Simulated scan of single mutants.
Amino acid sequence: MKKNLIILGTALILTSCGSWNRIGDLTSISNRNVDDSKKYTLLTREVEAVAEADNDALEQAVDNLTKKYEGEFLRNVKIYVKSNGKQVKIIGDVWGTQNTLINVTTEANANITLNVGDSIVFNRKGKITEGKIIGINSNIIIVEYNGNKKIELKYDQVTKTNK
């Protein structure tokens, strides 16, 4: 009986050392000055970065995300710290300026350019749904539809319209 209690106690202590503790939510966070004259767009949603707490871990985690997704700042950020205090994890949406125009080449050799603000249609649950592009990166586009709903789609899942 004593042996089982000791094993159980040791297991609880070891598992608690590896858990993440949520320490806060922030509306936005940045390590750079935000320029009000620029128009920022959503580049990607719900991404995360982990940094070691050797030196300025929160700053390092923010830098890791903004550099990886070529953004300027994060919104809707959740901050976690390991219970042992040695790592920081952040999860949030990356915002930045849209620096690229995406050209999509089809088999018919037509060149289609997708930009932020373009109207598109896509198949959603078996129905054709209209939307507007609010973010573009090299792999996906972010589309807003039905008012304020957002979805990430691949380029071959959308059709540009003339609206």
Rank of each mutant, 00 (worst) to 15 (best):
G147K: 03
A110Q: 14
G96Q: 07
K86T: 14
T106N: 13
K3S: 06
I112R: 06
C17P: 02
L5W: 03
G9F: 14
E107L: 12
E70P: 01
T159W: 10
D25I: 10
N137D: 15
F73A: 05
D56H: 00
R22Q: 10
Q87Y: 08
L5Y: 15
Q60R: 14
T44C: 11
I102P: 04
R75E: 11
N33T: 11
V62W: 10
T97P: 01
L12H: 13
T100I: 13
I91P: 00
W95A: 09
K39N: 13
E130R: 08
R45K: 14
L42Q: 12
G135E: 01
K149E: 08
G85E: 11
L65R: 12
T129C: 07
F122D: 06
N111S: 11
N4Q: 08
G131C: 08
V121M: 00
E152H: 00
A61N: 00
R75H: 00
I90A: 10
L12R: 10
I141Y: 02
Y155E: 10
T27K: 15
N33I: 10
S37I: 08
I141P: 02
I120T: 06
I128L: 14
T161Q: 14
T97W: 00
L58P: 00
I90H: 03
I7Y: 05
S28I: 01
A57M: 07
S16K: 14
V94N: 09
T41I: 06
T106M: 03
K127E: 13
N162I: 15
A61L: 04
I102W: 04
D35N: 09
N146K: 06
Q157L: 02
I23P: 12
S119T: 06
I140W: 03
N55Y: 09
E70G: 05
